[in-house]
Design a protein around this nucleic acid. Sequence first.
DNA 1: TCTGGGGTCCTAGGACCC
DNA 2: TCTGGGGTCCTAGGACCC
Length: 411
Amino acid sequence: MERKILHVDVNNAFLSWSAIYRLQHGETIDIRTLPAVIGGDESKRSGIVLAKSMIAKSYGVVTGETLYQARLKCPNLQVFPPNREFYEKCSNELYHLLLEYTDHIERFSIDECFLDMTEFLMKDTIENKAREIHRRVREELGFTVNIGIAPNKLLAKMASDFEKPDKIHTLYASEIESKMWPLPVAELLMLGRRTAPKLYQMGIQTIGDLAKTPLPFLKRKFGKQGVLLWEYANGIDNSEVVYQTEKPKGVGNSTTLPIDIANIDELLKILFSLTEQVAYRLRKEDMLATIVSVQLRSSTFQDFSHQGKLAFATANTKEIFEKAKSLLKEMYQVHTKIRLIGVRVEGLIDKEEEQLSFLEERKEEKQEKIDKALDTLREKYGYNSVSRATKLEADKIMRKVTCKSNFHFQK
DNA sequence: TCTGGGGTCCTAGGACCC
DNA sequence: TCTGGGGTCCTAGGACCC
């Protein structure tokens, strides 16, 4: 039986949501009507476009480019900072509205959901349901969405991406040839900036070209990814809409440093601060980690990473940090200027399971008590209400380098 | 004033075992 | 005194998504 899938995608999510927040807090100008973007902080070297208004878009501004580039295209561009807390709130409001239609719903990102409406239509049509959702979101939540209607997730997502904003599109099997095949191959989901040029070089320009390329050829050239892309180009996708109560598979924290650092002691202090947050989030999930990895990005944008297994599954800050520290020390080459440093835990297991299967004698109980005491305070008063000495030092380094970098900019 | 931060999944090569 | 081959596990790096 053919499935009825919707993909709901908030138009210019971060910018629309910031516009609403500002209007709610006394601003009279709607930033959706300006050449505006939501952007990172250039003084912290994270100056990229996170979302753009339709007017900024008309100047050629694209998500992900530097604010510097965006200003070249649109000289009177206005830049506003992100407000992630409010975005979470808006995202939740949307999710709860959509839950009224089906519980076969998958939160794909902060601003996108898939809905499997197959068993929830009653006597209504999928098009009518889409129109109702579309109208209710605009009227009740104050922002617009694009909705894609299709027999699978891939096609629904491609459909919602057609003409924006505030539109509903269908992409049924019979429409693939006319609506999807003429598009440039780079617009296909999972076909990114590395693969597109290779296809163009082979003379594969459109999604239709890709669909008609012999599968064995693509398999030979691109392996599993090649098979997936061929299936997508032909509108094939059997993946289910999964209601997500699943636990995360990894937890990470990374930061771009305000200026490059080539001093391992300073890097270690920042690494501790990052690790402390990772371990805290891990404990909030009631999970334990078995693998730790450390990432570095050099000033020349080369990425490095090392990972290692922990002797025991743990969520203890110090245990995770000791591993992270040895990983950093083994991979760090003296004098290399580091732009970004990050730490991640993976191989996560449920805390309860661990306690049932391993009744091991733990020697780090004291450390766990320290974590627990800090967690309790943080639950009550917020993450930054308590800080260990090392964290304070890390903050100092981040500030110090910020001052240095400001000085640098003034020269 | 040039290039975020959070993820997931895949691949290729090396180590090791039989 | 020629140099297998399959299987598993581990790791670094890369591609892609928002």
